[in-house]
């Protein structure tokens, strides 16, 4: 919970940061959702909107940085307030990256959908998107309510995302081996999948920041795994 200060402008500043982060989060969620929608429905118009929307997140991050520096200089915050501000800087950087990854997916729409691709190409991607978005929504909800009671769940979810990504990696390799004409779309889809997996990682970062804001401590280190797709090989026959 945020603490009331005698100077109410100060509260106003902190509220500004929280609200701005929240809006950036909403924007990032929507961008990822739309980028994948555009990909699955071959919607080039929508993809262009996503690419254009990225500027909102870039500006958001800049606003937050400026405001945060200003607050630090003017108020010399301590303890929880300082953590709020540092947290805001960190989270906005993660959200801005998520926006970039979403934009990157949207940019690939025109190449992937140049020719009609079988639906099976997208199915795994959709499942991966749902996982990544659930993770993102969960951490943003945790940020807005400052509730860290279930924050560790995010890490388990990240394991699921990694597992899904690895299986998708394998699947896409198979398509490429079946028919060389699949190589172009599937390579792009591999990058899309990687982007989604990265979005999951950023969500985990945000979870750690939220934990830090609320407790003043770093979340215990135990991130044993990452994705195992680097060891996936497929042999024919």
């Amino acid at each position: 919970m945020q603490v009331e200060h005698t100077v109410s402008d100060y509260d106003e500043d902190l509220r500004f940061l929280t609200q701005k982060i929240s809006a950036m989060g909403g924007q990032a969620e929507r961008m990822v959702e739309r980028a994948i929608d555009a990909l699955i429905r071959s919607d080039h118009k929508l993809a262009e909107t996503v690419v254009a929307d990225d500027i909102v997140l870039d500006n958001g991050q800049r606003d937050i940085d400026e405001k945060a520096v200003l607050v630090i200089v003017k108020r010399q915050p301590m303890a929880q307030d300082l953590r709020e501000i540092i947290g805001a800087i960190r989270i906005s950087a993660d959200l801005e990256r998520i926006g970039d990854l979403g934009k990157n997916i949207a940019k690939r729409v025109s190449v992937v959908t140049e020719y009609r691709q079988p639906v099976s190409f997208y199915r795994g991607l959709q499942a991966l998107t749902d996982l990544a978005l659930t993770q993102l929504k969960f951490v943003l909800d945790a940020y807005s309510t400052r509730s860290i009671s279930q924050i560790e769940v995010v890490r388990d979810r990240d394991d699921q995302t990694d597992a899904k990504y690895t299986s998708l990696f394998r699947e896409l390799l198979t398509y490429m081996m079946e028919d060389p004409r699949n190589i172009t779309p599937c390579t792009h889809l591999l990058f899309c999948a990687k982007n989604l997996e990265r979005i999951g990682d950023h969500a985990t970062n945000i979870a750690e920041t939220v934990y830090y804001i609320s407790t003043g401590e770093q979340m215990p280190i135990e991130r044993p795994k990452d994705d195992t797709s680097h060891e996936v090989t497929i042999t024919k026959g």
Partner: peptide, 20 residues
């Protein structure tokens, strides 16, 4: 939507760009 504390900024509860 879960319970929203009185006085809390509702733009934080409804953060999608359309809602904001």
């Amino acid at each position: 939507f879960g319970s929203v504390q009185v006085g809390r900024d509702i733009r934080i509860t409804f953060r999608s760009p359309e809602m904001v």
